[in-house]
Amino acid sequence: MTNAASFRRQFWSGGFYELAIEVGSTDDAALQAVLDAVWTAAQVQGCYGHEGREPEEQEAVPRTIAALEEFGQLLGRVRLPTGELVAFGVTAVRGGDDSSDWLDFGVPLSALWQAGVAFEEGPFERSAATDDWLAALATDAFREAPFSLGLVGWNVSGLAEAALLSDGLPEKRGMGYLLPRDGVLHYGAVND
């Protein structure tokens, strides 16, 4: 197995390349629906709670909000469009009275490097191929569990809110945006 698929924490460095989803509510059922939809769209292998142990060294855990809260994250492996198997983690940020829950699907940047993903030159880690893959996952998931906003890129969770995008997608985008309008999810790729 390559390091790209390892759950050992020493391989999880550089932050995460994320699909961050603003669920649109703080209801457990809505968060569970988005979790299930993303998991299915990504064709995840396994569901585990411990990042310090490989899947073969631990029991699988249920893909539930209760398990997510107990372990702080759920881990699995996914295949990139290139066929390379990589580790990933899902976390949730629960909203309060005035905000929404977020579900973050993140692949460690180090796993993408190990898998040979090409990144653009610049001050931030950017990969158009990874952006497109995550946007496609979000689009598939949206069909099963609509959400308020999706963000794609390196460490993007919480950098925008659906409530602040009433005029639509930003003209200049340093991250990918997935914004629903009239039941259709619109993708605005990075252009800045």
Rank of each mutant, 00 (worst) to 15 (best):
R53K: 06
E54G: 00
E54C: 00
P55V: 06
P55I: 07
P55M: 07
E56P: 06
E56R: 15
E57D: 14
E57A: 12
E57W: 02
Q58T: 01
Q58E: 02
E59L: 13
E59F: 05
A60C: 08
V61T: 05
V61S: 02
V61R: 08
V61K: 05
P62H: 10
P62F: 06
R63S: 08
T64W: 07
T64Q: 10
T64G: 08
I65L: 11
I65Y: 03
A66T: 15
A66N: 14
A66V: 15
A66Y: 10
A67N: 09
A67E: 14
A67C: 05
A67H: 07
L68M: 07
E69R: 15
E70R: 15
E70A: 12
E70V: 01
E70I: 00
E70Y: 03
F71E: 02
F71D: 05
F71A: 02
G72H: 12
Q73W: 13
Q73C: 14
Q73K: 15
Q73H: 15
L74S: 08
L75A: 06
L75P: 05
G76M: 13
G76K: 14
G76D: 13
R77D: 03
R79N: 06
R79F: 00
L80Q: 11
L80R: 11
L80M: 11
L80W: 09
P81I: 03
P81V: 03
P81T: 04
P81H: 06
T82E: 11
T82H: 06
G83V: 04
G83C: 03
G83S: 04
E84Q: 11
E84F: 00
E84T: 02
E84L: 00
E84S: 03
E84Y: 00
L85W: 04
L85H: 03
L85K: 13
V86P: 11
V86S: 10
A87K: 07
A87M: 04
G89E: 12
G89Y: 03
V90G: 06
V90D: 09
T91L: 02
T91D: 04
T91M: 04
A92M: 08
V93P: 00
R94N: 05
R94E: 08
G95N: 01
G95Y: 00
G96E: 12
G96Y: 07
D97V: 05
D97A: 13
D97S: 11
D97T: 10
D97W: 10
D98E: 14
D98V: 06
S99E: 12
S99G: 11
S99C: 05
S99M: 02
S100Y: 00
D101Y: 05
D101W: 07
W102P: 09
W102M: 12
W102G: 09
L103E: 12
L103I: 15
L103T: 15
L103D: 12
L103V: 15
D104R: 05
D104M: 01
